[in-house]
Simulated scan of single mutants.
Amino acid sequence: MNQFGGAAPALEALPHLARKGGRLIPPRIPSRDEAEKELDALERLGGRLIILGDRIYPQALRVLDDAPPVLSVRGQDAVLAAPKVAIVGARNASAAGRTLAARFARELTSAGFVVVSGLARGIDTAAHEASLQGGTIGVFAGGLSRPYPAENIPLIEKVAELGAVVSEMPLGWEARVRDFPRRNRLVSGMSLGVVVVEAAERSGSLITARLAAEQGREVFAIPGSPLDPRAGGSNRLLKSGATLVTEPQDVIEALRPLLERPLPGEEEGRMEAPRLPRPDDTGPPETVRARIIELLSPVPTSLDDLVRLSGASAAEVQVVLLELELAGRLERQRGGLVALI
């Protein structure tokens, strides 16, 4: 939209750009009728869409490079606007781990924070249940009409009623394995910090912690017994520099100063999208396009390096990247990096 001056010309340009990037069959633009049917289905479910510029769009999330432009939401506006802390951990959590997660969740909500988690079994469930009355947000890996796991559907309905559930995926999207790390970046991204209660050495919770560190969020870990494999990952986080916490007040004291200053990239709660010069209708010359594509590889590369090494303008580089992305040949990564798929 920034590149082409509005929604209508941007939509019109998509098939042409995808063909330029090498896609043989261009993407089909859904009709207005199809869009309205999906909105109606979401409304019947009790949900609505919020977009990046909306007042209630989670403030910490909007400053990320890969913030979702659209979120599907069921629940209360107030919890979306409040400061948040994520609590994550093992699905096969111990009784002690669940008790700790519940204690941290209750005391964090009493201090004015909303608890965010992924609606999974174990630690996630304990955190959501304990924070229902104080404020909690559950993040889906699939669409809102595809709650998972099935055993947590009663809890999911309570979270949607008293707090909120959110998803960046289409309404009927069935979650796949690769969608869970994508979900985890939202859990950490909308939070000021992430508390890892229990996590094995190969755990989705460690992915959430890594994403939180990349996003500039605080990472906290509760130490566990070296004899318990469910604590191996969380103990390793502590060795790697995560903040050791043994009680909720440790987290509250660490995060309270963050409430008094804006997040990186944030200015009075708003983030201005970059305004780039619009290229002419023909796009970059083929020689320029070839130079830019030659510089790309599976190794992540920054936009600044592409501009400097290709001799092209930022607008020309952005157009070529958009063409490749629409053709399914490019992946955008954190920190403004891009890589060929």
Rank of each mutant, 00 (worst) to 15 (best):
residue 1 M to E: 13
residue 5 G to F: 05
residue 6 G to L: 06
residue 8 A to Y: 00
residue 13 A to W: 06
residue 13 A to Q: 13
residue 22 G to V: 00
residue 25 I to Y: 10
residue 26 P to A: 14
residue 29 I to E: 13
residue 36 E to N: 10
residue 38 E to Y: 10
residue 41 A to D: 15
residue 44 R to P: 09
residue 47 G to P: 11
residue 53 G to V: 06
residue 54 D to F: 09
residue 56 I to C: 12
residue 59 Q to L: 11
residue 59 Q to D: 11
residue 62 R to W: 01
residue 67 A to R: 02
residue 77 D to W: 02
residue 84 K to H: 02
residue 87 I to D: 03
residue 108 L to M: 01
residue 117 S to A: 03
residue 118 G to E: 04
residue 120 A to Y: 03
residue 120 A to I: 06
residue 124 D to S: 10
residue 125 T to K: 14
residue 147 P to E: 04
residue 160 A to P: 12
residue 162 L to K: 14
residue 164 A to W: 06
residue 165 V to I: 14
residue 167 S to N: 04
residue 168 E to C: 03
residue 172 G to D: 15
residue 183 R to V: 06
residue 183 R to C: 10
residue 185 R to Q: 04
residue 186 L to E: 05
residue 187 V to S: 06
residue 201 E to R: 14
residue 214 E to K: 00
residue 218 E to K: 04
residue 222 I to M: 08
residue 224 G to I: 01
residue 233 G to N: 07
residue 250 D to C: 02
residue 251 V to A: 11
residue 259 L to Y: 04
residue 261 R to Q: 14
residue 263 L to I: 03
residue 267 E to S: 13
residue 267 E to T: 10
residue 269 G to Y: 10
residue 278 R to W: 01
residue 278 R to V: 08
residue 281 D to C: 02
residue 285 P to H: 04
residue 286 E to C: 03
residue 286 E to H: 03
residue 287 T to F: 07
residue 293 I to F: 06
residue 302 S to A: 11
residue 310 S to D: 08
residue 313 S to P: 08
residue 316 E to G: 03
residue 321 L to K: 03
residue 329 R to C: 06
